[in-house]
């Protein structure tokens, strides 16, 4: 990748926040806020894969959806550059019409394609729909495009007339990918896209996603809880805990030199496919606290084995550890990150 490209990433997310009001009573008064996503900063490079990881309830899915404006953001900026040379657009500031024009570039695939595909529409029509809506193809051209897309994801073109229930889980996920590919996207948000698949099928779909990336230069925001898949597929990682990023860096930095106690505990919890490596885990007691009443100070302090007084009091600043590696922990020494 050349220097000019490096300086102009596909997407820069700054201070992303999404709060949900908690309503109670007859008049649905707002009694609190769930800070599902509470100030995220990350950068997605062209043709690369960034993974958001964390336990359920950490806000990774909300982050992915808010970033695409499928949920209205509470605050923040998402700077998008279609090309390295083009000017950055803030997705959150675009009028609806312009946002709509950008939608083809930004696609999403979900964990369960069965829930996201209409059971009464053939997969051929499901894949054709975005082409027609965005007036990318008309007439017989549509059929050809659909056939080509099905082929591209490893399905026979003649399955276009079938309905979603006639497919296995892995095949349905291929249909979901074909649908996302229809509009030649620059970015696909993969929200637990391979989590529900059997291991042999999962490997097929991961290979497909990698091939598409190599071929078409698509960037992926990979939202996942399975860290062995993440380790394999990611260039960069951001570890989330209760709506915030506690550590981020390259896949190598996070997996081989984790600094935040939460990252270390999370990694030590991964079972290894090697009975000789049954190892001592870093105990992570309890569960992720409710985001309605997050703990004071560092959100992780209630489960951290290294907790000190200041952790209960103050949220730790994110510090830079060199080479793009960042962590937010009082016990990690590093240079201050300004503006982050």
């Amino acid at each position: 990748m050349s220097d000019s490209q490096r300086s102009a990433p596909l997407l820069e997310v700054r201070g992303l926040k999404k709060h949900f009001p908690v309503r109670k009573g007859l008049l649905s008064r707002v009694v609190g806020q769930v800070k599902a996503v509470d100030g995220l900063d990350f950068t997605l490079e062209r043709g690369q894969t960034l993974s958001l990881v964390g336990e359920s309830g950490c806000g990774k899915t909300t982050a992915g959806r808010t970033m695409l404006r499928l949920l209205e953001p509470t605050a923040g900026q998402v700077l998008y550059r279609a090309d390295p040379t083009s000017e950055a657009l803030d997705l959150f500031n675009l009028p609806k019409k312009e946002m709509r024009a950008l939608r083809p570039d930004l696609q999403i695939i979900f964990q369960d394609p069965y829930a996201s595909l209409n059971p009464r529409i053939t997969v051929g029509n499901a894949i054709a729909e975005p082409l027609l809506v965005h007036k990318i193809a008309t007439g017989s051209e549509v059929e050809d495009r659909v056939a080509a897309l099905l082929k591209r994801v490893g399905l026979r073109p003649d399955v276009a007339n079938r309905f979603p229930h006639e497919f296995s889980g892995g095949q349905r996920q291929r249909v979901g990918i074909a649908r996302a590919l229809a509009l030649s996207p620059k970015l696909i948000v993969c929200d637990e896209a391979v989590s529900a698949l059997d291991v042999s099928i999962q490997a097929q779909v991961i290979n497909l996603l990698k091939d598409l990336q190599d071929e078409l230069g698509i960037s992926y925001l990979f939202i996942a809880h399975d860290l062995s898949v993440v380790k394999y597929i990611s260039d960069a990682l951001a570890v989330m805990y209760l709506g915030r990023i506690v550590e981020s860096g390259s896949a190598d930095q996070i997996f081989n030199d984790p600094q935040h106690p939460y990252t270390r505990a999370l990694l030590s919890a991964i079972p290894h496919a090697d009975p000789k490596k049954r190892k001592k885990r870093i105990p992570l007691t309890g569960e992720i606290p409710s985001p309605i009443h997050p703990p004071s100070g560092c959100h992780f302090h209630t489960r951290c084995s290294l907790v000190e007084d200041r952790c209960r009091r103050d949220w730790p600043e994110t510090v830079a550890l060199g080479g793009g590696h960042q962590a937010a922990c009082h016990l990690v020494q590093g240079a201050s990150v300004t503006g982050a």
């Binding site: 296995s168 099928i201 999962q202 490997a203 062995s228 380790k231 496919a273 090697d274």
Partner: peptide
């Protein structure tokens, strides 16, 4: 053997996974 080769856990990053073709 195929199941083991499908595991991203054991593969090197960037290396292609050896998936079992087809389905059950």
């Amino acid at each position: 053997i195929g199941l083991f080769q499908s595991l991203p856990d054991l593969a090197k990053q960037g290396e292609r996974l050896t998936a079992i073709p087809g389905m059950v």
